[in-house]
Design a protein around this nucleic acid. Structure first.
Lengths: 250, 250
DNA sequence: GACTGCGGATCGTCGGACAATCTGTCAATC
DNA sequence: GATTGACAGATTGTCCGACGATCCGCAGTC
C-alpha cells in the first residue's frame, strides 16, 4: 500500500497494445475492411498490402491468418485472400445466433451489471435517440457502438463480448444496417428504450426478450435489403464476385 | 471418375482438405494439444516444431496465428506461443455460453432436423450408453463425439456448429470432463436420453431445456474438479504455470 | 464456338539473416 | 543473506530473396 499507487501501471483496461507489427497490420486491414475501403469479394494481393503498409510479406500473411479465422477474409489455396462476402443464408445464421447471444448478454447484464452501468446504458440510449434525431449517420453509428460497449463490457462474460464483436464486424461487412432504414429507426429506438427500462427494473427475462426481439427485427430488415441487393447483382459465385476496385453498388 | 477412387468426392463432410502445409501443421498441433501431448502452459518453441514437423518457421508461425485465434494457444510478444491454460473463471464463462448455444442448437435440431437425423441421434445415444457400460473411456469419448456430430451437423446453423466445436476443443484442454465422473455418468446418460426423447417428440422447448441443463450440470462437475486441481497447484501466474515436458498430474 | 497451350501473376514454402527482447545466472553491493 | 545489476544464451519478430506450384486470361487452332 504505497499510499497513492493502486495503479502503477496501465493494466486496468487489459491493455491490448498492438506491440507487434503483424497486429498493427491486422488492425489496419480489419479497419479498412469494415470501413468499406476494400469491398466484399475484392482480392487482397499480399505484395500490394506490403507496399501499402510498408511491411514484409510474412507480417501480412500472419495477419491474414487471424482475419481469416475471424471470417473477415476468405482464403482459397493458391488464390490468396479475398474480403469475405456473406451470403443471405450465412447472414440468416449470423443474425439468429446474434439474437441468442445478445439475449444472453442482456439477461446477464440485467442480473450482474452495477447500477452505474445500468445508468450509463440508459444515458447511452438517450444519446443514441438524440443522435438519430440529428440525422447524422456517423453520429448514430458511434452512439450505437458506445451503447454496445456498455452492454458487452458489463455483461460479465468476456467470451460472449468477443464473439459478438466479431459478429458486428461481419455484419458491418454487409452494409445493410437496419439503422439506415428511416422507417425502422423509430421502432429500433423504442426497442432499445424498452431494453434500458428492463435493465432499470432488473428484469432479466424482459431484457433477454427485448434484446432478442430487437435483433430479430433488425434481421428481417437486413435480410430484405440483402435479398434486394442480390436480386440486382447475380450471386452466381457465392463468395467470389469479381468486383473492381473503388466502387460499390450505386 | 477414375474408377479406382475410394474417395471420388469428399464433399460430404464439408471437405476441409488440408491442401496447404500450414493447415497440416495447424491440424497436427491442434490434435497434439487436445490429445494432451502438450500440456497447458507449456511453451511451444517454433524451431522445435519446425524440426518435429519438418517445415519452415513461416508455416509454423502462420499455423500459430490460427490456433491463437481459436484460443488454443496464447502468445505474448517476444515470449512465443504457449498452450492455453483456462482459468476457473474462463471455464465458467465458457460453460455458460456453451449451455446457451447448445440449447439453441438443440432447439433448432428439434424443429429442423430430418427424421433420419433424429433417428440417428437416438441410435447414437443408445450407442453412448452401451459404450459407457463397457467402461472404455476411449469408446465413450468417441461415442460422445459421434453424438455431437449428429446434433451439430443437422441443427441448420453452421456458425453455431463451428463455435461449439471450438468450445469442445478448449474444454478438452481442461481434462475435466464430467463423463469421467462415475457418479455423474448415469445422470449424464439420462439427460441425453431425455434430449433424444424430446427430439422424437419434436418438442423444441424441451430439447432446449434438456441440452442447457445437461451442460450446466456438466459445468458444475467440471468446475469442482478444476477448483480441486487449482487448490493443489497454485494458480499464481494464471496462464503460465511452468510445466515440464512429458508429464501431467498423476 | 469449344478446346488447347502459353505466359504472366500470385501464392506457398523455404532458408538465412539480424536486431530486439526475454530469462536465468552469477557476481558485486549493501 | 538479500538485493541489484550486468552478462550471456535462447527465442522471437521481422525482413529479404528465391523457387516451384498453381491459377487465370488470352491467343491460336480445329
Amino acid at each position: 500500500m504505497t499510499g497513492r499507487g493502486p495503479e502503477p501501471a496501465a493494466h486496468r483496461i487489459g491493455a491490448l497494445r498492438p506491440d507487434t507489427l503483424r497486429r498493427k497490420v491486422e488492425d489496419a486491414v480489419r479497419a479498412a475492411i469494415t470501413a468499406g475501403v476494400y469491398a466484399p469479394g475484392e482480392r487482397l494481393i499480399e505484395r500490394a498490402l506490403c507496399a501499402d503498409l510498408g511491411v514484409s510479406r510474412a507480417s501480412v500473411r500472419e495477419a491474414m491468418r487471424r482475419l481469416e479465422a475471424e471470417k473477415l477474409v476468405h482464403t482459397r489455396p493458391h488464390r490468396g485472400p479475398v474480403v469475405a462476402a456473406i451470403s443471405v443464408d450465412e447472414a440468416r445464421q449470423l443474425y439468429a445466433l446474434r439474437a441468442v447471444l445478445e439475449g444472453y448478454a442482456a439477461q446477464a447484464f440485467a442480473t450482474q451489471a452495477s447500477d452505474a452501468a445500468v445508468g450509463a446504458f440508459g444515458r447511452a440510449a438517450a444519446h443514441l435517440r438524440e443522435a438519430a434525431g440529428s440525422g447524422s449517420t456517423d453520429r448514430v453509428l458511434r452512439a450505437k457502438t458506445a451503447l454496445y460497449d456498455i452492454l458487452l463490457g458489463h455483461c460479465g462474460n468476456d467470451l460472449v463480448s468477443e464473439i459478438l464483436r466479431g459478429f458486428y464486424a461481419r455484419i458491418t461487412l454487409l452494409r445493410a444496417t437496419s439503422l439506415m432504414h428511416p422507417e425502422r429507426l423509430p421502432h429500433s429506438l423504442a426497442e432499445i428504450d424498452a431494453l434500458a427500462e428492463a435493465f432499470r427494473r432488473r428484469d432479466a427475462e424482459a431484457a433477454q426478450a427485448a434484446a432478442s426481439t430487437h435483433v430479430r427485427n433488425a434481421c428481417a430488415v437486413a435480410l430484405e435489403q440483402l435479398a434486394r441487393r442480390d436480386a440486382r447483382s447475380p450471386p452466381d459465385a457465392p463468395g467470389t464476385p469479381p468486383i473492381r476496385r473503388g466502387s460499390h453498388a450505386g
